[in-house]
Nucleic acid binder design. Sequence first.
DNA 1: CTTTAATCGAGACGGTACGTCCTGTCTTATA
DNA 2: TATAAGACAGGACGTACCGTCTCGATTAAAG
Lengths: 210, 210, 210, 210
Amino acid sequence: MMRRVTPEVRKAGTGAGGRPRDPELGPAVLAAAAELVVRRGYHGVRMEELAQLAGTTKTAIYRRWPSRAAVLLDLVAQRMPPPVEVDAVLPSGMAGSAENEDVVAASRLLARSLSDPAVVHCVMGLLAEAVHQPELGAQFRAKLIEPQIAAADALVAAAKKAGRCPPWVSGALLADIMTGSVLQHVVVRGQPADDAFFAELAQFVGNALR
Amino acid sequence: MMRRVTPEVRKAGTGAGGRPRDPELGPAVLAAAAELVVRRGYHGVRMEELAQLAGTTKTAIYRRWPSRAAVLLDLVAQRMPPPVEVDAVLPSGMAGSAENEDVVAASRLLARSLSDPAVVHCVMGLLAEAVHQPELGAQFRAKLIEPQIAAADALVAAAKKAGRCPPWVSGALLADIMTGSVLQHVVVRGQPADDAFFAELAQFVGNALR
Amino acid sequence: MMRRVTPEVRKAGTGAGGRPRDPELGPAVLAAAAELVVRRGYHGVRMEELAQLAGTTKTAIYRRWPSRAAVLLDLVAQRMPPPVEVDAVLPSGMAGSAENEDVVAASRLLARSLSDPAVVHCVMGLLAEAVHQPELGAQFRAKLIEPQIAAADALVAAAKKAGRCPPWVSGALLADIMTGSVLQHVVVRGQPADDAFFAELAQFVGNALR
Amino acid sequence: MMRRVTPEVRKAGTGAGGRPRDPELGPAVLAAAAELVVRRGYHGVRMEELAQLAGTTKTAIYRRWPSRAAVLLDLVAQRMPPPVEVDAVLPSGMAGSAENEDVVAASRLLARSLSDPAVVHCVMGLLAEAVHQPELGAQFRAKLIEPQIAAADALVAAAKKAGRCPPWVSGALLADIMTGSVLQHVVVRGQPADDAFFAELAQFVGNALR
DNA sequence: CTTTAATCGAGACGGTACGTCCTGTCTTATA
DNA sequence: TATAAGACAGGACGTACCGTCTCGATTAAAG
């Protein structure tokens, strides 16, 4: 007997029938969350108000995300720029680059991950909550941090092969330094992440990679 | 006209008569807060439980601090190691040091500010709350960050005068990089701040200061 | 002008075409409701669980009944024994009965209306809901109470004609006393409706009718 | 050593110090509940609205009562008239009363327990909830029913001693009949509990007690 | 044999209330 | 005046349930 194949492969979670999820609802919630998080901060995102602003109800939100933290985590994952792409920074023909300007440029991109204020506010709140909520921390790292580290590793590996990076530098270290410095500068010290700061940082890193 | 003193959050010893404050109570609260913050994280520090663990009541705590954040801020201020002392790192007779090992050593001290887990957890929570609570952020920076920057500035100035530091390096940048990298490594990525990491970081900084 | 028939709660078989209703589904729902109402009480009958126990879905139930109360009302109407039939109790030839044992026997039947625990639980819940839901109350009385009163009235009229019942006794009063006493005894006081109680009650009524 | 006696025996639950409960708050909640229950019925009493109407908050209500049902139970207990007092009905000098009018009068009082509409609505809702919530049912009976039964028992015992009541009549039976009949008449059938009904009922009972 | 129309299972949706939890303020009696 | 004790107002949380809705699939009678 031939298995009956459903004519259309459904993309919704469980697989079978039922009223399909409103496709506009999820994005609307994330957009509302982004607005609220910059208006009121991480703890100012109240589920009731979030639902109202998104034109829906708490119930619908909790059907998609298990908690408020999960919503904000998804918000960050969506707004965070994708990690550095090696090929975009180290084009094949660029082999004999006089200095290591290409690696430095890539590092600048890494640092600019935290340029969106909504992202910054969410990240702080999530980290504070994740400290003693291991599952949240694991998801946070899997969704946001590990791709970044992987990209940095690939970047460093390519640079090493081309002789433009000392062998003792690791991608993880580079990522820690770039994003960490921005975090400290912006969030902890409350300073603007302007071009002057990025220039200083780039010069520091460029000097270290000599 | 006599200024009306709000009974709450009065500094101890303002007036004359009355029962004196129990001098052991304040420290007991901070100790209990340190224990709770590592057990349950920043948001896990409930005022009722904190009071109970410190052997007192909420009333007594709120007489000393205006809010939960203020308690945790004081906790950090107390547990945070004092900022680097220039004289301890750059002794007068050490002038012609072959390399820049002394500045690197000072930077390591700067980085080790965040070695206490209680401090790390508090800092994250306080920052998350401070994002939309400007007064808290100002106090945070005045108590914790500005002394650090000042110390780093003094350190860098002395090193520059001795020719062991490039002129484009600022103390603020050095502090941002050192503490920020540790913050990222420990809190965001959840990695241990062990000697291997500090060594990598020191080598990076040492290379940059050449 | 053709009347627009709302698709919901349509009587089965109104129009022509279309898939016919599953005839086993309605009874299955009532049976499941009976089971649930004795297991968990009136408010414990959740529509989702009811549907699942009946092997169907909420949709199918709401196509047949407009609300949860309507389902339970139908359950009572089905499980409630039919009201007393005069002829069954007062056979024509039994005219000169020495006592009034026949009326007493009829009253016992009246009282036994509430012997089914599912019925008792439903009745309580329905009444509680009907207090401020006049339409539900009206349906409740029309379906369950008025037939009982009518039967009691007929019974009393026949008994009066045969001289076995004082002229000041009405069927409504008799019904109130018999069913009300059982309600109080069983539901309010939580006592079993056993033979001893019915005997006591019958003796009381028999004495009153002398 | 003499035990220190607190100068004033506190009536509040736990016994020791602390801010005393607002004595007006409990009565205000019960009054508000009475108003809401007649306006909207048992299920229409929402905790939030109840709190607001009483000029307080949900928290304060839940500190005094464990659940909504407990509030309404207390409301009934307060509004329900006290059970019949034998001495008030059977004065010592009234021994040779021609008929049994005194017992009948007492029964009428018994029946009038359900004259308050707020009481009736609450009783119905409580009973519906108590069906499968044994603890609530037990409290309901202990607070409301058992005193009534005890009073009826005392009444019947005194009447028997004076020869104005048949030996086979129990107080419980009399209470079941009186209150149950009213319950049925008012709640189930939706008829008014007017004098005509009470007269009919009294005549029936008076006849039975002959 | 196709069209039509109503049913079915499945499950998302808006809405509403629940009871819990926590913060920061207050009101007592006692030390 | 400080303390322990605990009630208070206020507000958000996440859960649970109701009754409605929107799908695709199914099932018969009508055309």
